[in-house]
Amino acid sequence: GWGPWIAWTPCSVTCGGVGVRSRKRVCSIFLIFKLSLSTCPSPVCVSVHGGWSSWFGWSHCSASCISKSGGDAIIPSRVRHRSCSNPSPSNNTSPPGNSCPGDAFQVQHCSELPNCAVDGFWSGWSSWGECSESCISQGRAVRRTRQRSCSNPAPSSNPPGQDCQGHSHQTENCDHLPFCPVDGGWGSWSPFSSCPVTCGVGLQVSVRRCDSPATQHGGRPCPGEGRQTRICSTKVHCPVDGVWSEWSEWKQCKFPGGRNIRCKKTAGSHLRSRHCLHRAHNGTICIGDNLTEMQVCYDIEGCDLKGRRDPWTSWSLCEPPCGKNSIRSRKKICKPEYSGYKSVYQDTANQIMLQ
């Protein structure tokens, strides 16, 4: 048989319309359920305003320490939230229920955290400094430097930050400079050369070069001489070859036997001589055999001879070159006439000799 009806379930709507509710009973023998449905009127709905739940726990801080940027502290934060569910605002009433007043989230600074370690960072490079020299010397580098500091920012001391990596100074060669003038310097003297002669005296030579260093880039040359000499002696006399002296003056023109031929057209003769000089130490004898020479002559010293005038010479230039007292001149030269003498010439002793 059927058991009693179980109580009606709540109406499917609480307000503002018609809902459905149900109840059931059980046949105890066959365990058969019987369901009965029925409509249920609902009262008019009243707006339900929202209410906040309790705050949920704080989240983790957004960072583990307080950092700095450009001098300003960057403090990490944490958040917590709550929901508008105690109760939730009604949305099927007229008017709908109000939402919860205030914010669903709350932010809080983690001011209790320690400061972050700050790693150092380089500042910009400074301008290049002056070169160590004004010109480039051979064998010595000319350099200039620039620097930077680990201050942008500097590493923190507590907690300790890392220093900047790399070098705080930078060096480069001043390759744009001109080369310095190099004055020349003498090298060592060479040994003297061997004596170049086998007899008598000779000249030995020692030289040095301007290469320690050599003159470069407009420098001054080496002062002094690059060659020096000294006399060397073999202690052996060299052969001295003979050389002829100058011919002596012609002797007086004479006739053999002492006959007087002065101012006559009778030919006589005269002599001149020379000597082989300076021969020594088995030197060669003067080349040639003539120690004397004889010449046919006429003795006309102090004799009266007919004269013959040459034509007038050309006029000279005027002296002085201008003015009323300027004069010029020309002349005739009177030369002795040697008619009757055959093929003759006159020497410095005024003796006529046949050629």
Rank of each mutant, 00 (worst) to 15 (best):
C222T: 02
G224S: 10
G226F: 10
R227P: 03
R227W: 01
T229D: 09
R230Q: 11
I231R: 10
S233A: 07
V236D: 02
H237L: 05
C238K: 04
P239D: 07
G242F: 09
G242I: 01
S245W: 15
E246D: 01
W247P: 01
W247E: 12
E249Q: 07
W250K: 02
W250N: 00
Q252G: 08
C253Q: 03
K254A: 12
F255L: 12
F255S: 08
P256C: 10
G258D: 11
R259V: 14
R259Y: 13
I261Q: 11
R262I: 04
K264D: 09
T266N: 12
G268N: 06
S269L: 10
L271P: 04
L271G: 03
C276E: 08
C276H: 00
H278K: 12
H281V: 06
N282W: 13
G283Q: 06
T284A: 15
I285Y: 14
G288E: 05
G288P: 05
E293Q: 02
E293W: 01
Q295W: 00
Q295K: 09
Y298A: 00
D299V: 04
I300Y: 01
E301P: 03
E301Q: 14
G302C: 10
L305F: 04
K306D: 14
G307Y: 09
R308F: 11
R309D: 01
D310G: 13
D310E: 14
D310I: 11
D310K: 13
P311G: 02
W312Q: 01
W312N: 02
T313D: 12
T313R: 08
W315E: 08
W315D: 05
S316Y: 07
P320H: 14
P320C: 07
P321M: 10
P321H: 11
C322S: 07
C322E: 11
G323W: 05
N325M: 05
N325P: 07
I327Y: 08
R328V: 10
R328E: 11
S329D: 02
S329G: 02
K331S: 12
I333K: 14
I333W: 04
C334G: 04
E337F: 12
D347K: 13
D347L: 09
A349Q: 02
A349M: 05
N350S: 13
Q351N: 09
